[in-house]
Amino acid sequence: MSRLSSTDTPTEEEAAPEVDTARNELVARFTAHLGEGLLESHVDPGVDVWLRVSRESWLEAAEFAKSGLGFGYFSFLSGIDWMPSPFGRDMDSSIDVALGNDERSEIDQTIQHGVAGGTGRFQVFARLNDVVNGLGITLKVDLGDDLTVDSWVAVYPGANWHEREAAEMYGFSFTGHPGLRPLYLPSEFEGHPLRKDYPLLARQMKPWPGIVDVEKMPGDDDEGDDS
């Protein structure tokens, strides 16, 4: 280990402004344009901004971001499943909770949402960048029970493949998409892998034993060390 000394190292923390004017202004302009469509927003000063819009104004938010605010760069689009996994994964437990195991019923299945809230189990979220000013925003939308939302392909052609991936991984459908064929998975694949209730079967057959040395290291007769 090198000696502990505080030399003239350039400090990295820039004084995070308590009021982030650029991002607050973004939120204000979105509110002015979308009105009721903007359900919730969250600004982390100096870091990032999240916006949750209603389903009806999902496409309008994209158009406004592109033409009105200068967010011409499409970064990604994907989904989130907010239901906690019924196959619990606690590293303190000695086994994964397998099918047929009693511990499964004790797992809390209440849905808690993350930043900028939400309703329902599934959300679609997307990220846009403004390359001139170096800002980025995250837009979220809740899907109802029919798991449908407008497609962004008319506004950002790059969303084509992202929506195909989200559709096959979660089972969403995007109205207005030119062709929602599967992207990654072979055609015989059944199910939607990224949903929380899709099990990883190899773990059900042979659960992970946890952080232990399963076999003694050669020459370790007396003490086995936990790694």
Binding site: G72, Y73, F74, S75, F76, V131, Y156, P157, G158
Partner: peptide, 8 residues
Amino acid sequence: ADIGLSYG
């Protein structure tokens, strides 16, 4: 450039 940006 603008097509490239909209594709990401």
